[in-house]
């Protein structure tokens, strides 16, 4: 079998200099013809197993769910949807109503999510002030959530949420993500937006989905540029 030296080096997780030297020293069953490395597939695999080298045969990188994080917040909000007129008299009923808005959840999953959200609220309130709360489960859900979602809910009437500034909450951003890394990324971007008081007052006007998303996209562009 023939491959370029770069390909072989990558596949064996070696630097190209090391590979080149090993070939020269005859320590690896690969021989060089010009810039190409010639080897016998089985021999090389056997050799790699002997060296206990973790040899990626086709070069799959594990755990890369959240790496393409460009505009992750916008896409999460898009998939979560923006929902007007969520009704409820207190924290629990609004949360229950909000959970019903999450797309693609079965009855049982909705119930489980609600229980998790309540458990999280008992720990400390997710009301982060100025009438905004970001309820989320403590741990990623086992099933039901394949892609990160932020479900935006404008409440019909403000409800007490035990928020840090004791103001009643009128907007919920329900954050659901398949992995912790993803969750942190969403949270950090959302909090960047919420730090801006102009954005808060914009949200208070209950803008429709496309206007809100456009605003978020603008914010995320700033983030990408600055690398915040």
């Amino acid at each position: 079998m023939r491959q370029t030296l770069e390909e072989i080096a990558q596949r064996l997780n070696l630097s190209i200099e090391t590979l080149d030297r090993w070939i020269r020293q005859g320590r690896i069953p690969v021989s060089k013809t010009g810039e190409m490395g010639v080897f016998h597939e089985m021999e090389l695999n056997k050799w790699a197993a002997k060296q206990k080298k973790t040899m990626a045969v086709c070069g799959d990188q594990p755990g890369g769910v959240c790496h393409a994080s460009e505009f992750i917040l916008v896409s999460a909000m898009e998939s979560g949807g923006v929902h007007q007129g969520i009704t409820g008299m207190d924290r629990d009923t609004v949360l229950q109503a909000a959970v019903r808005q999450v797309p693609g959840l079965s009855q049982g999953q909705q119930y489980g999510l609600f229980a998790q959200l309540l458990a999280r609220e008992q720990l400390t309130s997710t009301g982060i002030g100025q009438g905004v709360a970001i309820p989320h489960p403590r741990n990623p859900l086992d099933e039901g959530i394949q892609i990160p979602m932020v479900v935006t809910c404008y409440l019909e009437n403000s409800v007490p949420f035990n928020a840090i500034d004791d103001l009643p909450v009128s907007t919920l951003f329900l954050i659901l993500s398949p992995a912790v890394a993803c969750h942190l990324n969403l949270l950090s971007r959302l909090s960047f937006c919420l730090r801006d008081s102009a954005f808060i007052s914009f949200v208070k006007t209950r803008p429709p989905a496309d206007a809100l998303l456009a605003c978020i996209r603008e914010k995320e562009e700033q983030i990408e540029k600055k690398g915040v």
Binding site: P29, K50, Q51, K52
Partner: peptide, 14 residues
């Protein structure tokens, strides 16, 4: 990491 690789390559017999 590299040291171990090298040591293994040098000491295992083909």
């Amino acid at each position: 990491d590299k040291y171990r690789d090298e040591l293994k390559v040098q000491t295992t017999q083909r």
